[in-house]
Design a protein around this nucleic acid. Structure first.
Lengths: 226, 226
DNA sequence: CGCCCTACCGTACGCTGTACGGTAGGAACG
DNA sequence: CGTTCCTACCGTACAGCGTACGGTAGGGCG
């Protein structure tokens, strides 16, 4: 009977930059960055597509705003103990932030990151650098160590959220390993079970590497305190 | 005068999967994955767009083939020395492979990776795992350590090739740091020069973190040899 | 020679981001 | 209250994307 409801014009100030970013984050987390589109976001807000351009220059600007919103709101956990224990807790929390917000992680990995340290919210960076300095590391060493921790954390989180497709991945990996020649790749085939196990243990895998880095830092710090 | 040259039909077997992957890699490395399109690739090959679908199911399959081509052709450098020196050389070479082939790296980071160890070519994985086992690490430890090295290497390389936009990045980072309150973020502002310096030193930053991880592994290996 | 198989391709559909111009509704003012 | 103006919202349109579908042409073979 009725037309497909040609959508009444939305009331005058039903929109705002904050509202847009809110729904954008919702969509991003729900459907992933691939399924995100201006038209979908606008429809979700009950608004014409071009209304969004009143508040943002374009899609990238919405992405940036969404990322900044999440990172700016994030506060690293309060910690106590030795500098290395605290560093461990702060990094692990950052890792879990990324895991819980795959959208933000994808934006970071996909070119929507400007500058190494702005990525993980300045507050977190401040904490990390302070702890590194307290450990006795020099100025440049501390800066480099912070970069290392960031890179490793983002790299690890990226691995983990890849399409949320753990089962599929483990399966294709088994297939690939089964097709390997034990003569050509003896160690890989020998360690196949361990590799498969490890692949499904995200946090364990992350902390393993994190502890390696922290151990290395302890060595550096001890050496610096000569 | 003449029509815009309606493009004669290409001779019968002017195409092949290998040829397509070749040009795809060329385009990918030249213009980046964003500017890559079926139409562009076909035109580059002097062929109608849909001809590509005779050899590949679609764009993703071409991506996968390109990635597999590069990784399968890659051989880690021959090395000598202690296990940790060799490991260092192999990982550094892998890092440089990624830096030299941004396209492949993007594909790895963007969901076109299936399984942790298939990423970096089985040959490299074999070398890494073998060296780790030779160091005295246990089976699971070796598997985890290999994962750590991969994650860190990919994470680092991703940082480095981000839009090849080093200058822009450093600039925006300076701006951000200049707008920080020294009272709120004393350590960050204090270390601003070091952070900026470090940001522009890709390989140095990578080897710094790599050596941290290797130091951690040495500790683990020594402990394992009890 | 004639047929067939298939590599190549033209067209079309639904999707994307967004430039441009129009419209309507609230505020401000006489 | 009437008028005008500003601007938030929006409809349309365009160029580009990946690709489904159907057609065509040309080499291989009977």
């Amino acid at each position: 009977m009725s037309q497909p409801a040609p959508r009444r014009r939305a009331p005058r100030n039903s929109l705002s930059a904050d509202l847009i970013v809110d729904r954008a984050l919702g969509l991003l987390d729900a459907k992933g960055p691939g399924a995100f589109s201006m038209r979908a976001l606008a429809e979700d807000l009950g608004v014409g597509t071009m209304a969004l351009y009143t508040y943002f220059r374009g899609k990238d600007e919405i992405f940036r705003a969404a990322r900044d919103r999440v990172l700016a709101a994030y506060r690293p956990p309060s910690t106590s103990g030795n500098w290395d224990e605290q560093l461990r807790a702060v990094c692990l929390a950052m890792y879990e932030l990324f895991i819980g917000r795959p959208a933000v992680l994808h934006l970071l990995a996909q070119g929507h990151a400007e500058g190494d340290f702005a990525d993980a919210a300045t507050v977190t960076m401040e904490r990390i650098l302070l702890l590194l300095r307290q450990s006795g590391l020099g100025r440049e060493e501390a800066a480099r160590a912070a970069g290392t921790l960031l890179r490793y954390t983002i790299g690890s989180a990226l691995r983990e959220v890849r399409d949320c497709g753990m089962p599929g991945q483990i399966e294709t990996m088994r297939v690939r390993m089964a097709s390997l020649s034990p003569a050509l790749h003896p160690t890989v085939t020998d360690l196949a079970p361990e590799l498969a196990t490890v692949l499904s243990d995200g946090v364990g895998q992350y902390t393993f590497g994190l502890d390696l880095i922290l151990a290395g830092l302890q060595g550096l710090a001890a050496h610096a305190a000569d």
